[in-house]
Design a protein around this nucleic acid. Structure first.
Lengths: 190, 190
DNA sequence: CACCGCAATGACACCGGGTGTCATCGCCTA
DNA sequence: TAGGCGATGACACCCGGTGTCATTGCGGTG
């Protein structure tokens, strides 16, 4: 393709994960990441707006998957069922290949406030995409917002369990289970 | 008290809000804020961990209010009712004096991604406090988590409406209404 | 084949947020 | 009156992030 080594973003992510694992997120500078990847600091910021973003890139893509799946759900589907479709569609992106990387990312994010903060922003973006798609198919507020919030909660619960050490179950199963638990819990609130 | 002007934090917040209003959040440096307040940059960071925190200080206090109110709710109270108590308790902190400042803060936060991100972190902290207090009184997961999430959603909806231009209604009323709408909406999900 | 446009990178200076460290200043207490 | 101490100032420093211009070769066009 080009004269440079290909897969720049991948290489940067790999280098970053290695270094974060060795020394921790904030004992690693962007210059060190790019050095290991054979690039320069400036190039890093051409691919990621932020130092944090290297760990969360591609989440915008997930938003589209969620929204499209909700839009494509059969007409008589309830909000909960539509959200279930979205989770199922997302599960395709969480195969065994991605599991190891997911674990490494989660380990880094776990004890860094700044990274947790960014994760929340990504989830909020996801929620907004789901809520928008639900409104599009006629679900009124605040039900659309609520269903989206529950979907986000189910997603993050499923992701946590999926990346927990020793887990053997598939993402799709965990997501469906988390969603079902949450929907059932709505009956116990009042 | 001391030989310096009192109310350092307040003065910093006032100076910051003025400047943000005049030129926008990221066209104002911390040095400029402290200059207007008659202090130095270093002192700013002794009072706020971050530039962003100046707009969100005191939220930890709210977490305690929420948690305490939930813990103090009468025993037969449902999760939704306990959350309602928390919102009512919080309403005491949102009198008319605070409304103007709330509007100014919201205006600054509205179109700045970084600030929105921090707001999400604060809300997540609030949610965690509520969920913890609910578990403490025997509400099992994921109902505790869900109730907390709904409480957070009601809170932020109420705050948004309360600070909307032209609003005349009290925070307590708006919060109770938002919560009731959300609880009612749970019945329409499935 | 020579030329040119273009996309990705490098090089480099610069700004501003955030921190470590030591000095200063004055209130409070013994 | 001596000293503890808490809050601030002064100052140097690091690093994340950006603006800008130069460089490098690939692909298309005549």
């Amino acid at each position: 393709m080009s004269r440079w080594e290909p897969n720049t973003r991948e290489r940067l992510l790999d280098a970053a994960l290695e270094l974060f694992g060795e020394r921790g997120y904030d004992n690693v500078t962007v210059a060190e990441i790019t050095e290991r990847a054979g690039l320069t600091k400036r190039t890093f910021f051409r691919h990621f707006t932020d130092k944090r973003e290297v760990l969360f890139a591609g989440q915008e893509f997930l938003s589209r998957v969620f929204a499209d799946a909700i839009a494509a759900a059969p007409e008589p589907a309830t909000p909960a069922a539509a959200v279930g479709r979205a989770l199922a569609a997302a599960a395709a992106e969480f195969g065994p290949e991605r599991q190891a990387r997911g674990r490494r990312i989660r380990a880094v994010v776990a004890d860094h406030r700044d990274l947790h903060e960014r994760e929340l922003l990504k989830r909020a973006t996801l929620n907004a995409a789901m809520a928008g798609a639900l409104r599009e198919r006629g679900v009124p507020d605040p039900a659309a917002e609520l269903a989206a919030e529950i979907g986000g909660l189910a997603f993050s619960t499923a992701f946590r369990r999926w990346t927990e050490p020793g887990n053997e179950r598939e993402f799709a199963v965990l997501a469906a289970e988390a969603l079902a638990e949450l929907v059932a819990a709505t009956a116990t609130l009042d």
